[in-house]
Nucleic acid binder design. Structure first.
Lengths: 163, 163
DNA sequence: CCTCTGGGTTTACAAGCTGAACTCAGCCCT
DNA sequence: AGGGCTGAGTTCAGCTTGTAAACCCAGAGG
């Protein structure tokens, strides 16, 4: 019997992980989503080694996840800060999904330490309810269970022939 | 001015990444979701070094993400397979979120290689439409943008005092 | 001129990853 | 019984990545 399978190497999950799958990368993005902007903020919040932080920030900047912007505090010289691009902010659902998984299966006995809430930045119409990540199909079926979905080849699929 | 901040180390994202944040771990889970069960399947699909695969599978088993089950093919001796637990299957939304992000920002020029579709395992009532991950709050507001949510302290939060 | 601070860079060492070779148990064939 | 094959690992040498601590540099302030 001959069958074929989607090439697992030519896959957006693998490509995504090649950018944000290195140690610390997602935690840096998380802190940035939470408002960290300066080298020292990332360093002291995460406890990451300084040289590694420098190379991670550089990697994230060249990947387009973050942007290096000059800023100047009054009575101080010009420095650089790091902020998320649109592409970086788009990692929020990934981080919420990871948070939810960690809360469900590895929680602190006290309960979750962080709850993500529906509170827009401008705070108008803030409803403050906890946020969850749900799977939803284009036909509008929502809250799909992990078993209700499967992977199918897309237009860019490469195949492996298996005997 | 004195303020306080959620301790970034006592966080479910960090705990989740300590289990599935190592190189290859999420790709192993992805292949398992796609049906891989045996050592050799993971090895040949991913091209991961055999010793590393062995330690990763062991880590995932002790973390409760996978389970080592004996099986026996007719006319062969007993061997062991690895299958996802409930906890492991719960990583599907995380992987879909990563896939979506990779598709959006790092796509192959041909388009995505994999599309996740709404197709239950039993195939009854299969609608086959593409699946997306969306943020939704408990009040029913759906399709929240990354800017519409924020992190707030939960019951297990530890705080850092900042001067 | 000296010191302080934020933002890095250098360096030495430890830990983690890779590929190839080796092992081991049981089935199959002769 | 002996030899080969296969799947599932284990061992090992060499390279790459991560860590911690020391060092450096450019302004601001005294």
């Amino acid at each position: 019997m001959e069958t074929r399978r989607i090439d697992p190497v030519n896959c957006s999950v693998a490509r995504a992980l090649s950018v944000v799958g290195e140690r610390w990368s997602l935690l840096i993005v998380r802190e940035a989503l939470d408002g960290a902007r300066r080298f020292g903020e990332f360093h002291s919040r995460l406890g990451i080694a300084r040289n590694l932080l420098a190379t991670r920030l550089e990697t994230l900047v060249t990947a387009g996840v973050m942007r290096r912007v000059p800023y100047q505090e009054p009575g101080d010289r010009q420095r650089f800060a790091y902020e998320l691009t649109e592409q970086g902010r788009a990692l929020r659902p990934t981080l919420v999904a990871l948070l939810e998984w960690g809360d469900t299966y590895l929680a602190d006995p006290q309960g979750p330490s962080v709850i993500v809430r529906h509170r827009p930045v401008d705070d108008a119409g803030s409803c403050d309810e906890p946020v969850k990540v749900v799977l939803e199909c284009a036909a509008g079926h929502s809250h799909l269970a992990p078993e209700d979905v499967c992977r199918t080849p897309g237009p860019g699929a490469r195949f492996l022939e298996i005997s």
